[in-house]
Amino acid sequence: MTGSEKTKRPVQPGRWARTAVLYVVLSAAAIVVLFPFAWMIMTALKQPGTEFDPEFFPKQPTLENLKRVFTEFGFVRYFLNSSIVAVSSALFATLFASLAAYAFAFKNFILKEKVFAVIIASMMVPGLMYVVPQFAIINRLGWMNTYRAMIVPHLANVFGLFLLRQYMTTIPKSLIDAARIDGANDFQVYGRIVVPLALPVVATLFLLTFQFHWSNFLWQLIVTNKESLYTVPVGLSMFKQQHEQLYALKMAASAVSIVPISVIFVFAQRYFIEGVTKGAIKE
């Protein structure tokens, strides 16, 4: 099919059918993705003890689980903690990654490529390997049971550095040179030219790090020994006890825990999708 055919024949039965098939397939995929979420919400509305009754809609829907999650189980505090940790981690990790990426993309210094290679190579080490040494450092610093312990060790984000540097190298050098000729210093070039141009990728990185920290479990569990510092994932795991799982409560808390990520995603969706495709093509 060529472009000229398209303009000549406005109505194409084949095209209509194709669109219909596309919609059917997409709808089916959407149902597959959304069904577990729907199930989670329905379970959250069931009476405790009836979670496994073979029915989709609860017979006697109740908001009691939701209420108990916030009154009996301290999820207000857990949400506050998670927000503090995830927002500051994501902000600072993105900031540092973009600054470093700027240096690696536009500045010249000794052993630049080698240093970059070493940093990238560190991505090959599985994250779990860092847990004990990082924990030892945090402990010696006396940072146990602080927000710092949950935030600081994750601020150097190699993946983010790589992602942003790769994108920044696609920004025409002439643009940077033009700004320099106009008298802009490095921070001005970074803040006024590079970051705005790289905004989709920066926003993507922010989202990904936010999501990572929002759902991080193991690290936040081991550096805190106080319930007042527990984050949402740690709080959620309290519903799985040795012999029983409090499914209705767990689902109620889980349903609330996805709200921040969903809201941020909806607002940042434009950037996010742009960002994912932008990094892919190098012109």
Binding site: F217, L221, K226, E227, V234, S237, K240, Q241
Partner: peptide, 10 residues
């Protein structure tokens, strides 16, 4: 200190 059951051993 109340620890989640699954998190205790790690």
């Amino acid at each position: 200190v109340n620890i989640p059951f699954d998190g205790l051993e790690p």
